[in-house]
Design a protein around this nucleic acid. Structure first.
Length: 564
RNA sequence: UGGGCCGUCGCCAAGUGGUAAGGCACCGGAUUUUGAUUCCGGCAUUCCCAGGUUCGAAUCCUGGCGGCCCAGCCA
């Protein structure tokens, strides 16, 4: 954990682990946690919360946390996802895994043996009901279910049938192994839940070794037990599964110390969606360019957007761990990345929407190389050279023909400071005679104002600029929220897709950046002064065609004032 | 009128019977060649509501109200 963690009061899980440790309830293995994703999609920031918690608890209490792929459903899983998950976990943690990842599938032999043991104990039976029949006899939220006619098969028959299931003698879906618990239980998970199903699918890890696969409920608690997990941390929707988790371990005689499940609330963030199924829909429908589209709340997307692992960890620290709804505003995530990047991003200048400025009293063709610091508060970051020339680009928004309330940028007849350069005065605005649009500004500069302010007058504004002769063109991509509504509540896929913000991406292809940026490398992050934090796109940027992604805009107290 | 969980500032979140931490957001004001950063200051007489217990309650009890999860051979 970071030093500042000490200043944050411990959350309920830290308190729990601490008391388990003090009471000597953990056995020789100490604190063991696991992060157990299913490799059926990319990790998102909700997973980041879980990664930070699980690995964080192990680190804080001198224990161990493993990455374990919960790969019990070969129909939905792919090796592409196991690769992306491992890479995202390491990136976010900022270090390699302490040991290779594990797979629930590697425990299939033991899990199978446990199933036979359950059958032998009379606690599980083979049910021949169809999928539909099982659903129909499960009961409803308010009515109990009905017992399966196969519930009282004798142990020998159950064992034989189960072995034949494994041997591939029965068709997919024709039989299942069910726990024998209580069809009248208020908790539907306890109404003879399915433990094993027949599924002839090639598994990404075990190939065609198995044609029966254990369900989540049966395998998760056993994998935890096999690995010596002490604290099985998961989100609140699994709370109803805890009685089953404990029941299975009880029936199999797995005594203390043994794993205990503890739930915390899952993360949700306004104006985005944190459901693997829906993120998958966005990718599959082509609404985004991929799992790592910078608009995606995936770890890969945030990374490509320019987020740092440190910012993600800081965010996880800030949102806390509790059992109440963890519905967080975007503003907190943005705060975390600004806070981190402010310290480490080199400052440069870039003009997103250019307006030509001709400095009439600047010696034509002459260039003056000015020195500018890379970070105003951190001299150790060094400096770079800026070419000042007779023609420069400034931001369209930084000029208005007439003075307006509180507007402290350039106006006709007024003066403004060019960042890291001289003060200029606007003499004339050239307009297109047909459209009336301003096409160019004619200005003069004051040669006595480099590095010092005039004493006879006050110039309030400072604007950024790029030399027209030496600047480089660039494509800059601006991102906005993915959804138009704070929540992603929608009944069907179409309703959900209708919530998408049509302006979540805007591409500016006519931008100018200062020449020092030619050497920028993929993922390198900068602050474009007065604009925001940007990074070099890792996929599309080339030395001949620079592409920058806006990670986050700078805080802006002007736009609000101006429009309000 | 099935089971489980949760309700403390706009958002997150401490608090575990002794008189409401902190972060984000927001609002001032100072510094500033980024309308950024930084810095100072403000921001819950009140803890979903109503009763009760107590010298004392966000914390205990009772009863309401509101929200979330569960009827995949998904995880």
């Amino acid at each position: 954990m970071t030093p500042e963690a000490a200043t944050i009061p411990p959350h309920f899980i830290q308190q729990l682990i601490d008391s388990d440790l003090r009471a000597g309830r953990l056995g020789t293995g100490g604190v063991v946690t696991r992060f157990p994703p299913e490799p059926n999609g990319y990790l998102h920031i909700g997973h980041a919360k879980s990664i930070y918690l699980n690995f964080g608890m192990a680190a804080e209490f001198g224990g161990l946390c493993r990455l374990r792929f919960d790969d019990t459903n070969p129909l939905k899983e792919e090796t592409e996802y196991v690769a992306s998950i491992e890479s995202d976990v390491c990136w976010m943690l900022g270090q390699p895994l302490s040991e290779p990842p594990r797979f629930t599938s590697s425990y299939f032999p033991q899990i199978y043996d446990y199933a036979e043991q359950l059958i032998l104990n009379g606690k599980a039976y083979i049910c021949d009901l169809s999928n539909e029949e099982i659903r129909a006899t499960r009961g409803t939220l308010t009515e109990p279910g009905q017992e399966s006619p196969y519930r009282n098969r004798d142990i020998t028959e159950n064992l034989q049938l189960f072995r034949r299931m494994r041997a591939g003698e029965f068709a997919d879906g024709s039989r299942v192994l069910r726990a024998r618990i209580d069809m009248a239980a208020g908790n539907i998970n306890m109404r003879d839940p399915i433990l094993y199903r027949i599924r002839r699918a090639t598994h990404h890890q075990t190939g065609d070794t198995w044609c029966i696969y254990p369900t989540y409920d049966f395998s998760h608690c056993l994998a935890d037990a096999i690995e010596g997990v002490s604290h099985s941390l998961c989100t609140l929707e699994f709370e109803d599964h805890r009685p089953l988790y404990d029941w299975i371990l009880d029936q199999l005689g797995i005594g203390n110390p043994r794993p205990h499940q503890t739930e915390f609330s899952r993360l949700s963030i306004e104006y985005t969606v944190l459901s693997k199924r829906r993120l998958n829909l966005l990718v599959a429908s082509g609404r985004v360019s991929g799992w790592d589209d910078p608009r995606m709340p995936t770890i890969a997307g945030l990374r490509r957007r320019g987020y740092t692992p440190e910012a993600l960890r800081s965010f996880c620290r800030h949102i806390g761990i509790s059992r109440a709804d963890n519905h967080v505003e975007m503003g907190l995530l943005e705060h975390c990345i600004r806070d981190d990047l402010d310290h480490r991003a080199a400052r440069v200048m870039a003009v997103l929407r250019p307006l030509k400025v001709v400095i009439e009293n600047w010696p034509n063709q002459q260039v003056e190389w000015l020195t500018a610091p890379c970070h105003p508060q951190d001299p150790s970051m060094g400096s770079r050279q800026l070419p000042m020339t007779s023609e420069i680009w400034i931001e369209q928004d930084d000029f208005r023909p007439q003075a307006a309330k509180d507007f402290k940028r350039l106006i006709l007849g007024g003066e403004v400071r060019l960042r890291n350069s001289y003060i200029i005065r606007c003499q004339e605005a050239v307009t297109n005679p047909v459209s009336g649009a301003i096409t160019e500004l004619r200005c003069t500069y004051d040669p006595k104002t480099l590095g010092t302010n005039p004493t006879d007058r006050k110039v309030r504004g400072v604007i950024h600029w790029v030399s027209a002769q030496y600047g480089r063109t660039a494509e800059i991509r601006l991102y906005d929220r993915l959804l138009t509504t704070p929540g992603a509540d929608a009944d069907g896929d179409d309703a959900f897709l209708a919530l998408l913000n049509p302006d979540s991406l805007s591409v500016l292809s006519d931008c100018w950046v200062e020449p020092s940026l030619v050497d920028a490398t993929p993922e390198q992050r900068f602050q474009f002064e007065r604009v925001g934090f940007f990074c070099v796109d890792s996929r599309d940027s080339t030395p001949d065609h620079l592409v920058f992604n806006r990670t986050v805009a700078l805080r802006d107290s002007w736009t609000k004032k101006d429009s309000g």
